[in-house]
Each structure stands twice: as C-alpha cells, then as structure tokens.
C-alpha cells in the first residue's frame, strides 16, 4: 500500500518519554496499540484529532511529531 506522505517521530518521542510503550501511548490517546504501531510505520494516517492528541501527550507542537514529506 502507499505510504503516508509524511513521516513521524513517535518512536523517538516514546523513547525519550521514559521508554513509553505503544500500549501506554494508545491508552493516553484513546486508540489501540495496533493503531499506534500502524501510525508509527506510516501505514495509517491518523485523524487530525488523534494527531493532536499524540502531540499533546509529548507536549510538542504537531509539526514536531509529524513532518510533511511529499514533493
């Protein structure tokens, strides 16, 4: 399948946030661990709401978590 036209630093941010697990992040955001894994791998583009929730968990602005990569 086509990869999302943006990358993300969720894996690094999880590591920096005390080695937070995908399941922990999923609990905080309100999605399953599998959904966090799919987002990290660029297989699933989250809704704007979930993207903001993820950024909020790490205390970062959205563009520090997701970066547009097309063009």
């Amino acid at each position: 399948m086509a990869q999302a036209p943006f990358t993300n630093d969720i894996k690094t941010l999880r590591f920096l946030a005390g080695e937070m697990t995908q399941a922990d992040l999923g609990d905080k955001v309100g999605v399953t661990r599998q959904t966090i894994a799919a987002i990290e791998q660029g297989k699933y583009s989250p809704s704007l709401e979930v993207a903001f929730r993820i950024a909020h968990v790490f205390g970062k602005p959205l563009e520090d978590v997701f970066r547009w990569q097309a063009d």
Partner: peptide, 11 residues
Amino acid sequence: KEANLKEDERE
C-alpha cells in the same frame, strides 16, 4: 482488558 476496549477510528 482488550476485550473491553472501544473500537478506535482505524478499526
């Protein structure tokens, strides 16, 4: 725990 989780947007 997983059985009681609500369906998320991807699901």
